[in-house]
Design a binder for these strands. Structure first.
Lengths: 190, 190
DNA sequence: CATATAGTTCAAGCCGTTTTGAACTGCATG
DNA sequence: CATGCAGTTCAAAACGGCTTGAACTATATG
């Protein structure tokens, strides 16, 4: 499923890289953090975005240790972050012949991941809410003391949740169209 | 601006209400919490949604003390929550002739509030991100060591942020249309 | 198979946000 | 103008999510 490919890795031709203190260039820091912020906005972890952005900007397969140094993250953290990103299919794990360590490279754009996860995660969340409101309405209806007006108000709240769900759906569909060209865009440099 | 109206309050005709331990009916709890969840999803505080929902369901002006008991919140908490909700214009503060305490009642639907706040808060956030990416690109361009391919990748990230902003805009516009009937819907029971 | 290094797991700690509650201010009433 | 209740403020506590790092497991290599 996830291919274990042999790829060029840029760091082999720079022996110093293994020793040098992780230090992003200024512009790399700014860009990486900006992506961290967007992705956080979409409900993911800031550092998931930062890791992806680093790999994407460098366009080279980095080891966990390198990511660790560059972004000043812990060993365990990098392990978990890369696992998530790999599961979502936005980074790829590759094995280099000489090297005994895995390397990671950016695979696809982040919106794809955002959409995928939002689709399952957020929709189940919203439909859960709708189910709760439906339950409330049924309970209220069963209770003799509930007035007609109260039942109506619960129904209106259900409308609210439905509208939210509908809007969210439309949002996703839109972002898919909107970003349409993106699939190609992100792949073209590679 | 915010009218200080005289309104009917239902609790006066039920002297026990002042003494009874705050205890929502089961269906009220379910409904109130469901709304708390939706609103949290929109990036607000869970309890802001719960307070609004309680007022909306009861369709009666409640005092801070009553809200406090029903939702098991602290005095200070209710004060802050009602202040926020009133500022956003989704609840109204009313003064009753006999009573010396303020009462609150639900005024408009929550989506209105969500939209309003999202419009200012989220957009400034996204445009901030776009500005950061632009800065990164300029810095990278000024740095002689940056490759053409890297500049392109930053540009693609900017496209990503732009797409996000665009999608968000469309989402808001959509939710406005989508919910169109809502303005009337929420007002008709009152 | 021994050793070394890479990678994973998870309890504990950290940090930002929300909530609490006690002290305080303001206001109505006698 | 004294009393008591309503309402606000804010420092501290509680909470929740994220990250860390030490212990552990897996894997490559001689």
């Amino acid at each position: 499923m996830k291919g274990y490919l042999w790829e060029n890795t840029a760091s082999n031709d720079d022996p110093q890289k293994l020793l040098r203190p992780g230090k992003l260039l200024r512009w790399e820091t700014v860009a990486v953090d900006a992506v961290g912020n967007v992705i956080e906005f979409w409900g993911f972890k800031r550092n998931q975005g930062r890791v992806w952005a680093l790999l994407y900007l460098r366009d080279v397969a980095l080891t966990a240790a390198e990511i660790e140094r560059e972004l000043e993250l812990s060993k365990g953290g990098v392990s978990m972050l890369t696992r998530d990103l790999e599961q979502w299919g936005v980074i790829l794990r590759v094995r280099t012949p000489g090297d005994s360590a895995w390397r990671y490279r950016a695979e696809t754009d982040l919106l794809q991941m955002a959409r995928r996860v939002i689709e399952q995660r957020e929709f189940s969340f919203i439909s859960r809410i709708r189910a709760d409101l439906e339950e409330a309405r049924k309970l209220a209806a069963a209770d003799g003391k509930t007035t007609r007006a109260q039942l109506e108000r619960i129904e209106r709240m259900e409308t609210l949740a439905e509208a939210t769900e509908k809007a969210l759906k439309l949002f996703l569909k839109t972002s898919r169209l909107d970003v349409g060209g993106m699939f190609g865009v992100f792949r073209s440099t590679r």
